[in-house]
Amino acid sequence: MSLVTLLLLAAALIGIGLYGALSQQSFVMLMMGLELMLNGAMLAAVAFWAYSGAGAPQGQLLTIIVMAVMAIEMAMGFALVVAVFRGKQADTTEALSELKQ
């Protein structure tokens, strides 16, 4: 376990998450991709805190903030999905193509 291996793991998680966020059609699976990316970001933040931040408490605080952002993202995401589903019976991104106009 070293900074490099930790960052490689974080990079792998972010890569998989990006693939999921771009490729999935359903809203909820898309959000899972975003969450996986944030997972990698949190790991990287903690790794930097432990190995090159001299234990500055702001490193840990950043991770707490990311967790709060994840909660907000999920709550707002689901509320929007509920609203969209009520209005259009849509649960995939393609079904919302008229939003482009």
């Binding site: 792998a12 972010i14 890569g15 998989i16 998450g17 990006l18 693939y19 999921g20 771009l22």
Partner: peptide, 9 residues
């Protein structure tokens, strides 16, 4: 998406 994920990694 696969390419984007791999490139990001």
């Amino acid at each position: 998406s696969i390419i984007a994920g791999a490139v990001a990694f």
